[in-house]
């Protein structure tokens, strides 16, 4: 069964994929207030991801959620580099590095600068 990972696009991420074929794949959520790319993940790869990150889970929509921020960042980096959504193998090659970054994340994530 195919699962999905949603990559949220803020303004800086949108700028990085401007003019690429990825623009056509952007999905609007919540009346266009949120933009997202959806990466398909085959069953065996999603199991590999769930095994690597103990808090990750598949929600009722079939999306893999509660992934470390480091994983989501690496996923977007690979997408922007390849200008394609077919990058899950590339991300899995970086698992040790992502797991290392995720360990630090479990104790501290810098808060956003808002009032």
């Amino acid at each position: 069964m195919v699962h999905y990972i949603g990559v949220i696009l803020d303004e800086s991420r949108l700028a990085k994929i401007k003019g690429t074929p990825l623009e056509e794949k952007i999905q609007d959520l919540f009346g266009g207030q949120l933009k997202m790319l959806v990466v398909e993940v085959p069953e065996e790869k999603s199991q590999e991801i769930l095994k690597a990150f103990d808090r990750a889970r598949i929600d009722s929509r079939g999306f893999i959620e509660d992934l470390p921020v480091a994983f989501k960042r690496a996923l977007f980096e690979e997408i922007a580099k390849a200008k394609s959504l077919d990058v899950i193998d590339k991300v899995l090659e970086r698992l040790p590095e992502i797991q290392e970054a995720a360990k630090k994340e479990s104790e501290y994530i810098p808060p956003p600068e808002i009032e």
Binding site: G6, D59, E65, D66, L67, V69, K72, I109, P110
Partner: peptide, 12 residues
Amino acid sequence: SGSFLRGMVAEG
């Protein structure tokens, strides 16, 4: 999805 929202929050 609560977990989708948590992911968004964690990404800042």
